[in-house]
Nucleic acid binder design. Structure first.
Lengths: 118, 118
DNA sequence: TCTTGACTTAGAGTTAACTCTAAGATGTAT
DNA sequence: ATACATCTTAGAGTTAACTCTAAGTCAAGA
């Protein structure tokens, strides 16, 4: 898969994909005989997980730290699990808070609907 | 209330509060005889709503647009309500998506717990 | 009165995460 | 063979939202 196809698949621009590679978020991307990148299904799995972490608000630096632990093999398993469990707690409380915000927003909209706002 | 107290109340730094005023998000803040800002309960209500919008991911530009409609009085009521209802839909789908991310994350953590990840 | 700390302004600097540019090599359709 | 799109790189530019700096004013306690 070339960069254009991979870009379409992931929803990230070719620029962003090269940027992710530059900062170390994507590693060991294969090249064809003319030096063009060739992405594999493994790259797809990894980038999809990266995108999930990113979409849940994890900064690239922290994803990078997960990535580098991953490439250090099984001695980092506990640490990676810790990181993910910590992220899970953050995400749960984020959802909780957004739910409260939603309710407050719906209350405000009700005020508009009943003409109690000017 | 001076800027320090208002900062503590809102959780925003004094720098940020002045910045919000500079870009037009806070308007007509009173001053005492020596030119220092004096924040009122009305300012508190407004900033709290601003913070809610911000925390739900609304860009300052859009909050600003709500703010400027608000200061244009009742002829913008419908438009403001529209903006909030649209934001409500975005927020609902955000929460939905985060919920899905949470489930995928919990699944991944299960893989770690059962030793299926290396 | 002197010091200490809070306040003011305009404007510069920072950070994260892209996003684009330039200049050149390669690939694909007519 | 000739366009024309796509690939490559290093490095510069952009955007949002702060965050800080400098230089000066003001207020309260020893």
């Amino acid at each position: 898969m070339n960069v254009k196809e991979f870009s379409k698949l992931t929803g990230l621009s070719a620029h962003t994909l090269r940027y992710y590679e530059k900062i170390g978020l994507l590693k060991n991307i294969n090249r064809n005989q003319s030096g063009h990148r060739v992405y594999s299904p493994k790259d797809t799995d990894w980038i999809n997980f990266v995108i999930r972490l990113k979409d849940t608000g994890m900064p690239l630096q922290e994803i990078l730290s997960y990535a580098s632990m991953r490439s250090n093999g099984s001695e980092t398993l506990v640490c990676r699990q810790q990181l993910l469990e910590n992220h899970r707690l953050n995400l749960k409380s984020h959802i909780q808070k957004q739910q409260e915000h939603l309710e407050a927003l719906e209350h405000k909209i009700q005020l508009y609907k009943s003409g109690k706002v000017s």
